[in-house]
């Protein structure tokens, strides 16, 4: 990246439509925020008109593009007592453009990749990642749940996006082409762009105030680990559902299930009581307070330690989705300010 010059251009709405058409023509599928019933979530689209960038965030993160809710790892059909092992055809995975993901979501890809490719590379995940191009859209609005800036990100951060668009108003987007993948995605579409002419995105970006000092969080967590009362108090109203984990862009816990001759990988959550239940019947984390602690520890202590990446990008989705209004920002503040 260093050797590359910063590539910034302008693209209009109509040109964007042509770009979409080009992507489709190249055999890519486009996933983008789309209104369906009363929710905006990532779904297949064909034109920019279908894309809804109004909400601060989609309900669910785009992680399904890399790590679907349920995916087949391989299959093992049997016939007349013989079992055949069929690997997944990775070449058949469709090249995908995720359009309209926010900078926080784009940053989350690194956290996901860090887990899936930690000790050994996950072939299926990596193949999906290789086929993925991300076209982010910078945030010009935020809400009380956003805290990307507290974690080193920002509403216009380019990390993880192959191209980052910023809505400059008047149907015009500032397009920053960040990576080689981004360049490839607009190859042959040069005429759709205009020069940026020194336009600057900063004025268009949302203001996300820094809410706490991240440097304090990890040592505080480690000091609080055995403070049972603290964690009970923190998590009293938590009901232990999996909503936070399932909307989280970085949560990567999964379960393996065999079903009708297929090995399936499906989402799981460390918030569930059975997540850690041993065959013996012993459960090292029998209480919700312990599981809540695990959630914070994993994202802010274990992952930085093991994978050198934070397990949280400050998108605030978990807080928005929580049925009992658990607000992760509040909890992190409390951790940072706690006096164990």
């Amino acid at each position: 990246m260093n050797s590359m010059e910063k590539d910034t251009r302008l693209i209009g709405r109509e040109a964007l439509a042509k770009l979409f058409a080009q992507w489709l023509g190249e055999g890519r599928r486009i996933l983008a925020p789309k209104q369906s019933n009363d929710k905006v979530d990532f779904a297949e689209v064909e034109t920019p008109g279908e894309v809804s960038l109004d909400p601060v965030q989609t309900g669910q993160s785009p992680k399904g593009a890399l790590f679907p809710r349920v995916e087949e790892l391989f299959s093992f059909p049997s016939r007349d007592g013989r079992v055949e092992l069929r690997e997944r055809d990775l070449a058949a995975l469709k090249p995908t453009v995720v359009f309209g993901l926010r900078p926080c979501d784009a940053a989350a890809l690194a956290a996901l990749a860090a887990i899936f490719n930690w000790d050994s590379a996950d072939a299926l995940f990596s193949a999906r990642l290789a086929a993925l191009t991300t076209v982010g859209v910078a945030c010009n609005r935020c809400d009380e749940y956003c805290f990307c800036t507290s974690l080193g990100g920002g509403p216009g951060a380019t990390t993880g996006s192959d191209i980052l668009l910023t809505d400059m108003g008047g149907g015009e987007y500032l397009a920053e082409v960040i990576s080689e993948k981004g360049r490839q995605a607009i190859q042959g579409a040069g005429t759709l762009f205009q020069p940026a002419l020194g336009k600057d995105k900063e004025s268009r970006l949302a203001r996300v105030e820094k809410a706490f000092d991240l440097d304090k969080v990890k040592p505080a967590l480690e000091a609080l680990f055995d403070d049972e009362a603290f964690w009970v108090e923190q998590s009293l109203r938590c009901l232990g559902c999996g909503a936070c984990a399932y909307v989280c862009p970085t949560c990567a816990c999964f379960d393996i299930q065999d079903e009708n001759g297929r090995r399936l990988r499906c989402w799981d959550s460390c918030g569930f009581g059975l997540f850690t239940l041993h065959t013996s019947g012993h459960n090292p984390r029998p209480l919700q307070s312990q599981r809540w602690r695990q959630r914070l520890m994993h994202k802010f202590s274990y992952m930085p330690e093991r994978q050198s990446v934070l397990g949280c990008v400050g998108c605030g989705r978990c807080s928005r989705a929580c049925p009992v209004d658990m607000n992760i920002l509040e909890h992190l503040r409390a951790v940072a300010e706690a006096k164990p």
């Binding site: 669910q60 809710r69 009901l239 232990g240 559902c241 999996g242 909503a243 984990a245 399932y246 499906c266 989402w267 959550s269 569930f272 059975l274 049925p323 009992v324």
Partner: peptide, 22 residues
């Protein structure tokens, strides 16, 4: 449906320690 079981967690009558799905 994500199978996050928020419906179950929020329900005052879903109090089983081990649900049928488990």
């Amino acid at each position: 449906c994500l199978k996050c079981y928020a419906c179950r967690a929020a329900c005052p009558l879903c109090y089983c320690t081990r649900c049928t799905v488990e």
